[in-house]
Amino acid sequence: MEDKIKKVSIIISKGSLIDVYPGLIMANGARMEGIEANLFFTFFGMDAIIKKRMAKIKVATVGNPGMHMASLIGILPGMSAMATAMMLKTMDKLGFPPVPEYIEMIADAGGKLYACKATVDMFKLKKEDFCPQVESIITVGGFYEMAAGGQIIFT
């Protein structure tokens, strides 16, 4: 019990719903345990904090063996939307909020959210493109400084 985790810095690097949720669940769960939590969004994971995209994150139905569905079926129009709707419904029943509400909840819980500078430059984004919960745009060096003394989790 003496070796309790005090701080986690979680990187969310992929942009499907299945990729985004685990990082959010872990960050919020950390705050629930009194653990300091930082979230660093990079590459397509950044969709979770982009105002225009955060409510539209989808389940990928192609190239995901965990779906137990042939990719050929996954490419049909509407499959991803249907899988997304089903998943969001199930998550809601279990008490997990949709992405925008989750982001707000984590920020209210004291979790800190950051956007990756390299990705911001690559996609030509501006601070105004992000939801207000995002503290700042930081470099990878800034991330390591912020993560110092804690655990880093890459998702």
Binding site: R31, M32, G95, P97, M105, D108, A109, G110
Partner: peptide, 16 residues
């Protein structure tokens, strides 16, 4: 915590 926040009893921030 989400449910408590939604009832309007106390916000998530206040609860923490």
């Amino acid at each position: 915590i989400r449910r408590i926040n939604k009832t309007g009893l106390v916000s998530t921030k206040e609860l923490y």
